[in-house]
Write a protein that binds this DNA or RNA. Structure first.
Lengths: 209, 209
DNA sequence: TTGGCAATTATGCAAGCGTATAATTTAGGC
DNA sequence: GCCTAAATTATACGCTTGCATAATTGCCAA
């Protein structure tokens, strides 16, 4: 008579977080097709039935994992801003530097991001999450750009600010992808320098560092 | 007594090409998980058993499809370069405009690209293909930027040209992704205008159109 | 100490998957 | 016009998947 596996009760938050972390690990290691209910449960140290207790469907778990990933990436770029001087130009420069340097630049994160992008066009939930996180990031960038320009006495026109944010966001996205996908083609310092100089020319600003 | 489905014999090349095309269609429409043997066979207008007659395993078919996709994308972008005007400034502007407008901007291409990106960090062959196509594209852009700058009497410094190409490539990639992923957030004209203006400021150039 | 309830495990199921193999049809050489 | 080899269809098998449900266990209140 095999004894039933012993277990510990965990708070709802902790369990959900553990399941999401296990999901992201599975996707990062073997792609979305490797993130089966059984594999996720194994990695999280629970049995598969528990997943359905916290997420009505696997799709729901995947969407939650995507949201966690994206907000994590966004916050990674914003996290160390508090260490920088309040000067708007230094803040913008620091933000740009963070976005194209480790730990934001990371092959694992890149693989997860690519997996998510693939789902966005056909899964409404994923699309909504992407839209929200994309706009949140872009709005932060737009505000920072506007403050930096004002600090330099070059207040942007109404539509100009939006265009700067769209282009700046695209620039950071592209550099992040390149740095994450082919890291040995660039040194960390080079990427940072290219990003800062590109923003300087884009905004006609002199940025510190 | 149901009659057995009638069929036509096709040349090996044609059948392999049809199966690969059907595979890419399936991936574009429903992601890799939708590219099942049965779905591919249905879309190709054959029965599933035939697939194994041309490809020993499904993995082999997927690999062939990815190779076809990547070489097709590379050749497509290189071919479009020849259709552009000879004047360096108009040439660069036209190239930028094309890169952020249909048919280059295309949800199907985006989905396929995301599926490939996902494999790059894990699969050395995919990584090699990506590296080669990325560098080929970037080198072409670098040459066009250098010619445009020279035409405007602003020859770039040695390291400057590389930095412009990396940043410009990142900018185009990012805008292409945004436009493909959230098309209703931008009008075609807006994206084109943003891209051209961003390059004008980045390179300190006046571009036509 | 002990109920009781929610958290967790355990088991089962139907559907879809890739693959194997046998049966049949097509097309071309003779 | 038939005969043969290859192309294609048809069928079946074993496995994995996501999901459902029953059985058990851990924990907290009383």
């Amino acid at each position: 008579m095999n004894a039933r596996r012993p277990y510990k009760r965990e708070g709802e938050e902790a369990r959900r977080a553990a399941l999401i972390r296990a999901t992201l690990d599975c996707i990062a290691e073997g792609g979305p097709q490797a993130a089966t209910v059984r594999a996720i449960a194994l990695k999280a140290g629970v049995t598969q039935g528990l997943i359905r207790h916290y997420f009505a469907t696997k799709e729901e778990l995947i969407a939650a994992a995507h949201e966690t990933l994206m907000t994590g990436l966004t916050e990674g770029s914003l996290a160390r801003l508090d260490d920088l001087p309040a000067d708007p130009l230094a803040r913008l420069a620091g933000f740009i530097g963070n976005a194209v340097s480790p730990p934001v630049v990371d092959p694992r994160a890149m693989a997860l991001w690519a997996a998510s992008m693939q789902l966005v066009p056909r899964d409404p939930a994923m699309r909504a999450v992407h839209e929200a996180t994309y706009l949140a990031f872009r709005d932060r960038l737009e505000a920072m750009i506007a403050q930096a320009l004002r600090a330099a006495g070059k207040a942007p026109g109404p539509g100009e600010s939006r265009a700067f944010a769209i282009a700046g966001n695209a620039l950071l996205d592209g550099l992040w992808i390149e740095a994450s996908l082919l890291p040995e083609h660039f040194t960390e310092g080079e990427m940072k320098s290219i990003a800062i100089k590109a923003f300087e020319r884009l905004l006609d600003l002199k940025l510190p560092e």
